[in-house]
Amino acid sequence: MYAFEIERPKSVDEALAALGAEEAQPISGGQTLIPTLKQRLAMPSKLVSLSGIDELRYLRREGDALMIGGGATHGMVAREAATDFPGLAKLAGKIGDPAVRNRGTIGGSIANNDPSACYPSAAMACGATIVTNSREIAADEYFQGMFMTALEEGEIVTGVRFPIPQASAYMKFEQIASRFPLVGVFVARFADRVGVGVTGASNNGVLRWREAEEALAANFSPDALADVTAPRASDMIADLHGTAEYRAHLIPVMTKRAVAAAE
């Protein structure tokens, strides 16, 4: 790693002040950023650790929504969302491994927007709102392609508000070495709509499969997807773990499994 200073503010205000410094970068759980720093792929002069900010570590029910603080770890979400939003709790409980889940945070994952991250699929399917220190951004506008988001320099994700679906499930086909999803699909059924969020597959990052959403809104069953136009293979990621065609094929497969498993 290159040399840098590290600061550990106790509040969001202190963190924003620290982030005003030249080449300062926020770090949340660090489960992606620390390996990146080790590879010398980032060269911040100062890291501002958000891990000591207690006000970001919470889950709370807000009417029909679940509000999750940006500093909530995957482990916290897996435990504390289990009653209100089991589909999301199960997604969180399958990220990485237990030690990674005790450090990695939802805010960090959403800010990084890895094209294979799990949370963005749930945020897209549910129509979540990304809350930052200065504004609220709809998921559809927030995710802007691989590792690209609507965040401005120095802006941090303070929380994510998920409308709670009547039924939901996340199904991921794991890339066996990294255990990131080769393709992951989150299906969320609400009273008046269905959301289908797909991660891991596309060159453009997380996407909504709108044709499937319409078909499932009319008939929420795996059979409803039989004749639905699938996302195009030409837009999919191709690497040594799977061809673009393979990933495209997995999208309807995992969507059907998620529909069947939705609770």
Binding site: I6, R8, I34, L47, S49, S51, P98, A99, R103
Partner: peptide, 15 residues
């Protein structure tokens, strides 16, 4: 009390 990979947390974060 929580399991953590000590290679993926800075010493300063354990203050």
């Amino acid at each position: 009390g929580e399991l953590v990979k000590a290679c993926t947390i800075f010493a300063a974060e354990a203050d």
